[in-house]
Design a protein around this nucleic acid. Sequence first.
DNA 1: CGCATTCACTTAACATGTTAAGCAATTTCC
DNA 2: GGAAATTGCTTAACATGTTAAGTGAATGCG
Lengths: 152, 152
Amino acid sequence: MRDFSRSLPMSLLRAREAVMRQFRPALREHGLTEQQWRILRALAAIDAVEVTELARTAFLLGPSLSRILRDLEARNLIERKTAKADQRRSMVSISKEGVKLMASVAPNSEAIYAEITRRFGARKLAELQEMLGALELCLAELGGADDTIAEG
Amino acid sequence: MRDFSRSLPMSLLRAREAVMRQFRPALREHGLTEQQWRILRALAAIDAVEVTELARTAFLLGPSLSRILRDLEARNLIERKTAKADQRRSMVSISKEGVKLMASVAPNSEAIYAEITRRFGARKLAELQEMLGALELCLAELGGADDTIAEG
DNA sequence: CGCATTCACTTAACATGTTAAGCAATTTCC
DNA sequence: GGAAATTGCTTAACATGTTAAGTGAATGCG
């Protein structure tokens, strides 16, 4: 069997970990996890979203998002209100405090990203991202666990 | 701020998830998680290893590995014995049952990997892996949380 | 209308990720 | 030789990943 440490999943895992290692300390200083940061960033780009849509954007599973939103709401970093038209839906938005927190983290985060880009090379980085996107696309067609496309 | 859904961490996360989606169902059929599978594969390649070395190989943190080894030992898929020379060290190896389980999963796993390679293209895949390795390397120099190199 | 189905979200249960603390065996250094 | 530091591993505590089940609201349809 192929040396698993050179398999694609391991390569992707190690690469991602190498990247996230750079960011985690800065986030930690502000009491944020990687996933909480993703949610705040997703929310900062829009006015308000439904939970399901937010899950897709932040790439989190429903149950994880449910828990995190509960905690972020308790910390007054986000706000929720149920939609008028459909009581099942809950609209999530970032709070003033949330915006303030983002503002205090963003510069540091941007600096780290810039350094990574500088070291790896902007062109190479773009190339890499394009390949990752292509991989994702070609596997999306293939499907996988509970793929909604193939089951229609 | 840059659209975070196009950031490098997100690209890596989505790509990896797209890949793992293909494998998880097969592993699940045999009652294995991705991490347990990584450990068995790492063990299959050698006679016996120390826990710390296994953690490095399977890319798992100590505490995670500790728990998983406890469970795999309870399922008789691995074996442990403390080293004679140093009572702190524990040597881990795969059991006969473990080998048998691997043999029953490996063909399926290999087939999935082959299909991914076929769809994405072997050459492109090699290129991608090379870029991932380069990224990892260039960030390793940069360091990160609790980096042992920079602290010596 | 009424009832089964679907939908949006939450809870539950278990496995892992992550950091800090604990513990015993070993090594250092005087 | 022995106290202090280090090492190898485990536990603890909390956050998230993952799948299944639960709950209340909306929808489809007879």
